[in-house]
Design a binder for these strands. Structure first.
Lengths: 357, 357
DNA sequence: CACAACTTGTAGACCGATCTACAAGAGGAG
DNA sequence: CTCCTCTTGTAGATCGGTCTACAAGTTGTG
């Protein structure tokens, strides 16, 4: 009952060959721009292709040659930073014969593996992956047969390429900004779940370590406060509300990403406070951060540039490059109105009152 | 020099057959859960599969059978409504053997065709598409060989399924809300570009027509004001700024999507006004709309539900259903603080002054 | 005990491309 | 004119699965 998968309309290379009066091999040569084709034959074949509306089967191609498909594994779509990557990659491959295909991976731990494997199973010619959580050894195994570019990984393997922004530098910018404004009670809200075991080299970990180092350097080691929430705005909102209810709440929060930073902003508003009371810094510079209603100070890592660069590296690998490349992009601090100098006395009094009730 | 595409590690069905001491056909049966397999053989084969780490090649499978791949064509990632669809579809196929794969299509006109075609070329078992712009006739041709579910299309074909929200009802909710607040000068900002020729049946068109009808019904036909901007927040921002500079600016703006509504909000802030001066209503209820800094009144069309429903319909089609199904989801108005009663005298005076300078 | 019906596994064609090896013909050199 | 090289096109193996047809064995029935 199910419709036939190859209906009458489906035209194969054989049909084109018959129409043009040549062999299958000849048609194959023409569509691949291979050597050994006379202009006359090329023309006849192209005419036949056009006339019949022929489209090569990617599956059949994949069995021997290339699929002209690049796979991107993405762990999250809610965070618009990730979607910027796609925009960058899309434009980078726009006038290549390659088609981009995205495999969504849920936040859960195993999903990164599943999605990348699914792409490899589908014979993509190369993979760009954004899961910082998968093991390096496993990736190297994949990379042995399929070119791989990893985004946001600081562990430099010589089997795959990496593109990262300098998370240490970015986090330093954020912390210096808060310290220069005069903040001393600076909390860090990280997307690393409490008590999770995680590779070092993951952006969040580097941002966390940089926070710690900056606090120590400033002689504020005793005032460090790190809250590990998972992924998502909602979790950050809850954690921030709890934090603001503390007897001694922080005067500034540095969040590991913009998304949780939005949650903090929401919590600040919910608590009847403003960013004059509690400064907030994010990381990513997602689109909405610049909106006047949000106006979040954050660290910009140019997502489109990262995505485009990753795509270019992947194309180079496919073209034959084997020496690894590891690109680092410099982040920039974007100061908006979510960060202000602290109001020491008034604020702490007011917040203490809030904590008491 | 390029790495071999099928390295030493690549294990085929033949290897598994040898390891288990059975035929290729037997292994094939086991992995497809086909009839005619004894428990003993199943066990041996599964053990061999596990031992060798065998993964079936999707390309090879695609040549005869299924690829267990569902394709989603998406025109936009910046708009988080679209990404919600993915979340819904992902959960809907989570415990099916199918893998979701997304093909990005740029905003430009031809891109929808290109992306859908790319998916079909890759032998996906079914397609969910969100491009309202592609021609129905072309889609029906595609649908003849590959099951298709269209999102956000009101033209009910009997060759493919559709899932839409009731755009007319949603737009009516928005308009009624503004009218009940007392607004009379209501402008409509639509993502339809000026002077574009577009299928009726496209959500934006239906929202536009509903706006017109509501204005006429309320006796405000002469006060209709429609501005066609393209896609994107920035374009809406520019258009809104121009509109607010008018001698007689509107007291409320109904935008065809949340994204341009954000642009209007930004323009309102830039002009030194608030939503007390100019009310704004969007459509989609994207995540950020609920944030206190934005607090946009909008029409919620449950993206996740739409996506999940589309995926379910697609799975049904793949399973053999041939009668078309056309699902309509009822939207809901979400009132937040971006809509307030108009301030007739003060506002117009102030705005007029603004227009004069 | 003969024959039917069912179960279990295999052989081999097939899907639609790519790609190697080679044949036929054209042009050039000596 | 012969031999060599280069160009142009073809035949046919090959990729890794699926699936049909069938053989062999097992169980049931009258």
């Amino acid at each position: 009952m199910a419709a036939s998968r190859t209906p009458a309309g489906s035209v194969t290379i054989q049909d084109v060959a018959r129409e043009a009066g040549v062999s299958r091999a000849a048609v194959s040569k023409v569509i691949r721009n291979a050597y050994g084709v006379s202009p006359a034959m090329r023309e006849r074949v192209n005419a036949a292709i056009k006339k019949l509306g022929y489209r090569p089967s990617v599956s059949a191609r994949g069995m021997r040659g290339a699929t002209y498909t690049l796979g991107i594994e993405l762990p999250e779509f809610a965070n618009s930073f990730f979607t910027r990557l796609i925009a960058g990659a899309t434009t980078a491959v726009a006038d290549s014969p390659y088609q981009l295909v995205i495999a969504p991976a849920d936040q859960t731990h195993q999903e990164g593996y599943r999605a990348i494997q699914a792409l490899v199973d589908r014979q993509v010619d190369g993979v760009i992956a954004v899961s910082p959580m998968v093991e390096s050894a496993w990736l190297e195994e994949i990379a042995a047969s399929t070119p791989v570019v990893m985004l946001g990984r600081h562990d430099a393997s010589d089997r795959y390429d990496t593109v990262v922004n300098d998370d240490a530098a970015g986090a330093r910018l954020a912390m210096r900004h808060l310290l220069e404004l005069g903040h001393r009670d600076i909390a860090h809200l990280t997307s690393i779940p409490e008590k999770a075991v995680i590779d070092p080299g993951v952006p969040q970990v580097i941002r966390l370590e940089t926070y710690r180092a900056a606090m120590e350097e400033a002689g504020l080691g005793s005032r460090m406060r790190v809250v590990g929430v998972g992924v998502g705005e909602a979790a950050a909102h809850r954690a921030a509300l709890a934090m603001l209810g503390d007897p001694e709440p922080p005067t500034a929060v540095f969040a590991s990403h913009d998304e949780p930073a939005l949650g903090v902003l929401r919590a600040v508003a919910d608590a009847g406070l403003t960013t004059g009371d509690v400064s907030v810094v994010g990381y990513d510079d997602i689109e909405i951060a610049g909106h006047p209603g949000i106006s979040l100070t954050t660290v910009n890592q140019d997502g489109e540039r990262l995505g485009a660069l990753a795509a270019r590296l992947l194309l180079e690998r496919i073209a034959g490059r084997t020496e690894p490349r590891h690109e680092v992009i410099e982040p920039e601090l974007v100061v908006r109105s979510s960060t202000r100098p602290p109001r020491p006395s008034a604020t702490s009094a007011r917040l203490r009152a809030l904590g008491d009730r």
